[in-house]
Amino acid sequence: MIVVENLRKSYPDLEFDEVKAVDGVSFRCEPGQIFGLLGPNGAGKTTVLRTLATLLKPTSGRATIAGFDVETQAEQVRRNIGFVSNNTSNYDRMSAREMVEFFGRLHGMPEEALQQRAQLVYQQLQMTEFLEVSGGKMSTGMKQKVSIARAIIHNPPVLIFDEATVGLDVLVGRSLQDTVLELKEQGKCILYSTHHMREVERVCDQIAIMHNGKILCEGTQQQLREKYMQDDLEDVFFELMDQQSAAEGVV
């Protein structure tokens, strides 16, 4: 469903001439699977996800979503994804209902289908109590629910969550993870980026650990633990970071 092949994105930089934000990243994510991108801040996760959401153009490499190329078929790609990030906010001067239904209409949903789908989404996300509250007056939890509702209103096969739990309290964060798991049950193909180990352990089937624009390792939790002979995923992560730092030191 999501196929990324040798994706690169670089920017000119005054100090280092060129910064390789993403440096040859490849992975696949299938329907009914949650693929976790784990990495520290600045690892290149957001750049990968923004490229998949067609906000940025790759410098080289290729990525397809639902068979559509992110560079040449951007519009079709956007119709097949729902993108939730801590950079995608809601309109302050629009109510939850207006916001969600505006995006549904933008996706070209017929009015009747939109209303049916919207009711389902509102119930699923327990939004019915604050449908008429405007964005500016919502709590962080409400805002996050509206963001998710906005992203899934057109029932896309692929969902991308970019550090969606940043700034949320434990309760709201947990509820978001539950929603993601529910969406997985519905057969969605989900790409989930975070820098929290516990989140990855709880929701992701397949994990890729990113650092300095590269994927250092990829596999299921079990595979990673076995490969690096660590019981805890966090230990795997630190082991990899240490190896990476040592390798960079040698270079």
Partner: peptide, 12 residues
């Protein structure tokens, strides 16, 4: 306010 990115990753 971060709403431009929301709009840009939408279908329009």
């Amino acid at each position: 306010r971060g709403t431009l990115e929301t709009l840009l990753c939408g279908p329009a």
